[in-house]
């Protein structure tokens, strides 16, 4: 089979992870701006966006590791990755775990726009082509885009759950335990 097909599949794969992030980013920024919450909470909600992006990146890398299993030789990686730039760029998303980078929240948006531009490119091609021609590519793209949006939103809410509920709960439990220890003596 033509490698173009696999190339296209890998492009869809990368889009499935990252193309939905810009919309989530814009939504969160706008919605949080309207929230009647303390500024610290708002700041925290926004600061979770790069972490969300990094988690999605981790999931993507996990999938690639699984795809390459069991042959992790450089030759195999080279032959298997048909979009080296996109792959490399997608792997860079885990760098948003680093505080130095995730402090600049807008960087996550800029990083993800690369993947959004693939969708934009296909839409542009669709506009420029004659009406009545096949729009299967846009249809595929939009399905993948929807999935990506759902994935990113899901990960974002999971991150909120962990940061706002799970971490305080663990902290509280630890505090309770540390208070109980002296009573045993």
């Amino acid at each position: 089979m033509d490698t173009n097909f696999f190339k296209y599949l890998q492009q869809l794969e990368v889009m499935a992870f990252f193309s939905g992030f810009p919309l989530l980013y814009a939504l969160v920024i706008v919605v949080v701006g309207y929230l009647q919450k303390k500024p610290e909470v708002k700041k925290k909600l926004i600061s979770l966006l790069p972490y969300t992006y990094a988690v999605v990146g981790t999931l993507y890398i996990g999938l690639q590791i699984r795809n390459l299993y069991p042959n992790y030789a450089f030759e195999n990686i080279k032959n298997s990755i048909l979009h080296p730039f996109l792959f490399f760029w997608a792997c860079l998303s885990i760098s948003f775990y680093l505080p130095v980078i995730n402090k600049r929240i807008v960087l996550s948006l800029l990083h993800s726009l690369v993947f959004f531009f693939i969708l934009l490119k296909d839409l542009f091609i669709n506009i420029s082509q004659k009406s009545g021609e096949d729009n299967s590519i846009v249809r595929n793209d939009m399905k993948i885009y929807t999935d990506s949006l759902l994935l990113n939103t899901g990960v974002y809410f999971l991150t909120i759950l962990i940061v706002f509920f799970l971490v305080p709960l663990i902290k509280k439990l630890k505090t309770l335990r540390s208070h109980k220890i002296p009573n045993r003596f």
Partner: peptide
């Protein structure tokens, strides 16, 4: 982003 996404959905559903 909403306009672009909306257009995409419109095309894909047409």
């Amino acid at each position: 982003l909403l306009i672009i996404s909306g257009y995409g959905y419109f095309v894909s559903c047409t």
